[in-house]
Design a protein around this nucleic acid. Structure first.
Lengths: 347, 347
DNA sequence: CCTACAGTCGTAAACGTTTACGGAGTGCGT
DNA sequence: ACGCACTCCGTAAACGTTTACGACTGTAGG
């Protein structure tokens, strides 16, 4: 089966009618449409997307750009897959498909994006891992490609994005720990300066100062957000002259390494040191002791992302009226055993 | 910037020459080519992929189909991202790009694949998670779409695939445990009957019988390959009338749940029960006690996959002569603490 | 009988490329 | 002066669709 032309010949019908029949256009006879659909099914014909999108100027495909830096590969979890399922549930309603574009680690994400967009393989884009200044945002804005970003950026003032509520998490975590009697609370921060992790620290600092606890820079531990990073963080933590009684992790996977290093020194998490994590709970729950963790509903996040994107596409705008242009995504605390003790009884 | 036509007008050159200049064809003047490239850069022109691939019948894009079943999302790790980087390193040499096609969990993978292939958005396909009988394999073969599979299948006798060495791992694990004095060895198996996990069990059984140990079906624990599954496995294990002294996990993530459940009952992994895992080591190393685990080099696996695929594509065949059509991918044991004791001293 | 109209369908142009083909110009040897 | 080879470039067809337009029926209303 080559193309619509062969299908038309096989049916002794004009090519235009076949196209109309397949695309559900009104001006075609019931019987004719039936025959066309049957023949297409039988011969396994489906329209060539190149021809179609050349003519119509759209591809019905949405791209989700993900980056495969060493950091990302190390930390890989179900984040993108979870979001993906939410996205697809929205897109499916409009017969849109989702494609993941993994940017090679040795290529500039901006160049990669340009190449992919230029190919017109997607109608719109979801970018993730936005940096403090991110050229992709200006590029997409100028090129008038509909997009949403998963992550804030300072690059442009007004573009659609959803970001996790770093600040709320840090704030909530500090408040909780203080309520449990902690005064000396450590926190981990991303080692790279590029992204917006500093919001996490800022919020942590403000929460402390609200309770008249001085901010101590030595309690901010900059390590990679991985198991290794967690191990490293615990190591540095144990070296501090005045050891903190609690630590807030920016990524829950770090807990595995952290636990290990602590136990190597006979320090028991959840008894000698309170630990509280961030980003995802399922894995955390199976640690021993289980990790108190702020949890994201990945599916819902995907749904929100999808809606926000479609609200920015002329063809679908009407389906999603009045949505916000930016969302700070809330997280929910799942209490575990890792911080369930009163520090007052300790010292 | 609309198309090549505008670019040509802007330069007062014919559209054909512009195309030739951009594509590095020989019959174009040095100076002309320079001007064209400069103008293209300046005006930000890049060829529309729809038009191009319509004309040439190829897209320079390779698709990697991944499935987002509940199981996959739960177990998400760095497997695909790791493989991806290896793939891209091969593809980059030929200016090919990689696209990930996430099949929605509520859609039949076969239908999804057909739709994507029909769109001619990719030139070739890598499929994963192959089932015991997998219609995608017949479809791709018949449609003459170059492809490789990540995983064996019984569907067709002769198609290119790479699969992990289940059998070698089970064999090696049993041998190792027996050498340490274990006689009663449990093993986990995938709960779904669909894929080829039974090879794992078969090999386990053969290794046991080689040492005159009778195969005991009650030692084969069918649970999901997740943290939850690990928890469940430990639970069932503890209920056995005659408790095994070792257990082999088919997926290393299970260890987290398994450890937890064991510790809840005061059973210490690595002292009261030997544990040995499969698939990936980095995470396993940070458990406490660290998990003995068979490790995969994901990057190398990706490279091998990419090469095998290109060897099956006419345009690239010559670059990769004489490769094998099937590979059983070996895994390497990374010894940890979880099985580093002699059971002889125990009982 | 003429006209209007609804229901179908065929025709052909357009989308943006690449590329086979041939033509114009130049330089060279005879 | 002529033929020839070579370099460079323009023309136009082709890829597979979709869709605006008009043509052809048959029917109903005047």
């Amino acid at each position: 089966m080559k193309g619509i032309r062969q299908l038309a010949e096989h049916l002794n019908i004009s090519i235009g009618t076949v196209s109309r029949a397949l695309n559900g256009k009104p001006d075609v006879n019931q019987e004719t449409r039936r025959r066309v659909l049957a023949a297409a099914e039988e011969l396994g014909y489906v329209a060539n997307q190149s021809g179609r999108s050349l003519r119509q100027g759209e591809t019905k495909v949405i791209g989700l750009m993900i980056e495969s830096s060493k950091e990302t590969v190390e930390n890989a979890d179900n984040f993108f897959l979870g979001v993906t399922s939410g996205l697809q549930s929205v897109f499916a309603r409009h017969k849109l498909d989702l494609l993941m574009l993994p940017c090679p680690s040795d290529e500039d994400p901006h160049e990669y994006l340009k190449r992919m967009v230029a190919r017109r393989i997607v109608d719109a884009m979801i970018i993730s891992d936005t940096q403090r200044v991110d050229r992709r945002i200006d590029f997409l804005s100028r090129a008038k490609i509909p997009f949403v970003a998963l992550g804030r950026s300072l690059s442009a003032s007004n573009f659609p994005w959803i970001d996790l509520d770093f600040e709320g998490v840090a704030d909530h975590a500090v408040e909780r720990l203080i309520a449990l009697g902690h005064r000396r609370i450590a926190i981990t921060a991303p080692s790279s300066e590029a992204n917006l992790g500093y919001l996490f620290i800022d919020s942590y600092r403000r929460a402390l100062e609200r309770h008249d606890i001085a901010f101590d820079p030595s309690l901010v531990i900059r390590v990679r957000s991985s198991e290794q990073g967690g191990y490293q963080a615990a190591h540095e933590l144990l070296l501090l002259e005045e050891r903190p009684t609690a630590v807030i992790l920016i990524y829950e996977l770090m807990a595995i390494g952290l636990y290990r290093r602590l136990m190597e020194s006979g320090v028991m998490p959840g008894r000698d040191l309170a630990v509280i994590g961030f980003r995802d709970a399922p894995r955390a729950r199976f640690l021993q002791p289980s990790l108190s963790c702020f949890r994201i509903s990945l599916y819902d996040l995907g749904v929100a992302l999808g809606r926000m994107l479609l609200a920015n596409m002329p063809a679908y705008r009407d389906f999603y009226p009045g949505g916000e242009r930016n969302i700070i995504w809330p997280l929910e605390l799942m209490p575990g055993e890792s911080d369930a003790f009163d520090v007052g009884a300790m010292v």
